[in-house]
């Protein structure tokens, strides 16, 4: 497999008049790239159609939504106003913000502490611990919903944000990202701190974590977004409409507006806005988070 990478191109390539062929090849590449660009633009635009359509519909008066047209005779923000007054959408936004923040902060703290120990300390059963965490990756959280629900019921935590966040915090992937990052950090600063009498926690807090900002950002943002979009688990533990997260609220509560498409699309757009904002602000971190977990898998 690998050997074929550097295999020479078709042997019949005339090497004698190399210059002419080369120019032809370059032209071929340029043409090819131009076609690529066209095709890709077409697909990218196609991909944006549903989102654009949602926004377009949300800006229509309800009467106009029964006609599948992009043109709006009488654009209006009224649908957004109706949604905001009919549904506790700001509450859902608040609930999502709180639960996602709890999850992200909890994950960063617990995973970075554990990863630091695994990366820097020598102790008995380190491999056992490492493999136990690795095994955790194999358990999809979804297969645990039944016992977890019972547990939250027993703890009296149903309908609290803790029930949503706590089971989402122990994720092995976050540990791997941190451990990989810590393993790659130079040790000299730590050595210096140690000579100055710093203990383990001080080294973690003052030396390693400040250097690990990119890893912190990637884990925090990726966890935040994942947690924000989680549906199944919060759907089970949050049943009070005022405490629901955005996805659960949108999935559960039907507006009093029935099938008024402008209003429905306005609620979809409002549900999308926070994440679009996060995406635009932290695009680089999110992408790095995915590429990082993925590549080193």
């Amino acid at each position: 497999m690998a050997s074929s990478i550097l295999a020479p191109p078709d042997a019949d390539t005339a090497r004698t008049d190399r210059g002419v062929t080369q120019a032809k090849i370059d032209q071929r590449h340029r043409l090819f790239n131009r076609i690529c660009f066209g095709v890709l633009i077409a697909f990218a635009l196609l991909w944006l159609v549903p989102l654009a359509w949602a926004v377009d519909t949300a800006l229509k008066p309800n009467a106009e939504t029964t006609r599948a047209s992009w043109l709006i005779d009488d654009p209006t923000f009224a649908a957004f106003g109706r949604v905001l007054s009919d549904m506790p959408i700001l509450n859902w936004f608040g609930a999502s913000l709180i639960t996602s923040t709890l999850t992200a902060v909890g994950t960063v703290i617990t995973a970075s502490l554990a990863a630091f120990a695994l990366s820097r300390m020598r102790f008995r059963y380190r491999n056992v611990v490492f493999w136990a965490i690795l095994a955790g990756i194999m358990i999809p959280g979804q297969v645990l919903i039944v016992p977890q629900f019972r547990e939250m019921d027993a703890l009296g935590l149903l309908n609290t944000y803790w029930a949503v966040s706590l089971p989402q915090i122990p994720t092995a992937v976050a540990i791997f990202i941190f451990k990989q990052f810590f393993d790659g950090l130079p040790r000299d600063l730590e050595e210096a701190a140690r000579i100055d009498g710093a203990g383990w926690f001080r080294i973690y807090r003052r030396v390693v974590m400040p250097l690990a900002r990119p890893a912190v950002a990637a884990v925090a943002i990726f966890t935040f977004v994942t947690s924000w979009n989680e549906l199944l688990w919060p759907l089970l533990v949050l049943t009070n409409p005022d405490l629901m997260t955005m996805p659960v609220g949108l999935a559960t509560v039907q507006g009093a507006f029935g099938i008024r498409y402008a209003d429905t699309m306005a609620s979809a757009v409002l549900g999308a806005i926070p994440l679009v904002a996060v995406f635009l602000l932290f695009q680089r971190h999110i992408v790095e988070g995915i590429a990082g977990t993925g590549l080193k898998g």
Binding site: M246, P247, A251, V276
Partner: peptide, 9 residues
């Protein structure tokens, strides 16, 4: 962009 949106949306 679609990937980052909640399934409910």
């Amino acid at each position: 962009a679609p990937f980052i949106l909640p399934s409910a949306v």
